[in-house]
Design a protein around this nucleic acid. Structure first.
Lengths: 157, 157
DNA sequence: ACTCTTGTTGATAATAAAAATCAAATAAGA
DNA sequence: TCTTATTTGATTTTTATTATCAACAAGAGT
């Protein structure tokens, strides 16, 4: 498994030890592509097979993983941080998020056409871009349908 | 003052009363374009002329303003929400943020060339975009200089 | 494999942002 | 002015996250 090797290498390079706890947290995130788990959610999954691992360790591990670039911290304004794997081996794999303001559902947009914009910003502001986040807030197709249905029903009376 | 009229109208339309507290909070945010204040920071400014206004009211007011579209909530992963005026009268005035990962400074990018991307997303995902946030994380010019200086000094020995 | 050193963990307490509570105060329509 | 539903201030509560510290374990060296 290539990902796991990169993970071990990154830990090593940064001078951190490979512990069971770190391996388990890494596996949980890795096995849930497309999900955006909060620390508590990750803890709940970890607990199943490893009830001895504590919540504080999950928080610490996530912070560490973020620092050495293994995961990204996302914020959907729902009161907690959420995390996803950073695609270490594949820079072109970046994606953006659609956040439904009605049901809270989060969809992934698998495009990255910000290259020009990035180049412009880097030159114009003399700013070295390491990363970016782009979120679109709005209504998903389901909630649009639901709203139209309600509107229709209310005029049928 | 045009902004203030729009503010009053928006409150009214949504069925909320115009109170001294709401006016004061609005004025503080309006008088600080380009800043991104946290609730505590807004509270500290409000307190100067209105020590009778409580922190809870500031939190409530900010939440209300966000709901009726008067301000935007921003998140720079520094442990609290931050707010800026939403340019109610001028949709073209949208901007993005550059967040320096070294000094934490936040710069504003006064461009919005996401029109095509938005159209694509709206059509392809059947998603109604109401708003978006775009943040670039990286090194500002000052921190770049500082890093180069340190590198130079360490090789001069 | 054994030891040693230092980084790491688990349990818990501490912190801090934000929300909830509720009696008292007030905006705005009648 | 009067009335009433909203709003507020003070305070408590909630909840996410971090700090603390003794016990523990990874991994380098022997």
């Amino acid at each position: 498994m290539k990902f796991y090797e990169i993970f071990k290498q990154k830990l090593n390079e940064a001078g951190y030890k490979l512990t069971t706890q770190r391996r388990v947290v890494f596996e949980v995130i890795g096995a849930n592509e497309g999900k955006h788990f909060s620390p508590e959610e990750i803890y709940d999954i970890v607990k199943v097979d490893h009830p001895e691992i504590g919540l504080a360790t999950v928080y610490r591990t996530l912070k560490l993983f973020e620092k050495i670039g293994i995961i990204y911290r996302l914020n959907f304004n729902d009161g907690c941080s959420r995390f996803e794997m950073s695609h270490l081996d594949d820079e072109s794999h970046r994606h953006h998020h659609l956040v439904c303001i009605e049901c809270g559902k989060i969809l992934e947009v698998k495009i990255d056409s910000l290259q020009e914009l990035e180049s412009y910003v880097e030159k114009e502001y003399s700013f070295d871009i390491h990363n970016h986040t782009l979120k679109f807030f709005g209504l998903c197709s389901d909630c649009k349908k639901r709203r139209n249905k309600c509107k229709k029903e209310s005029t049928e009376s």
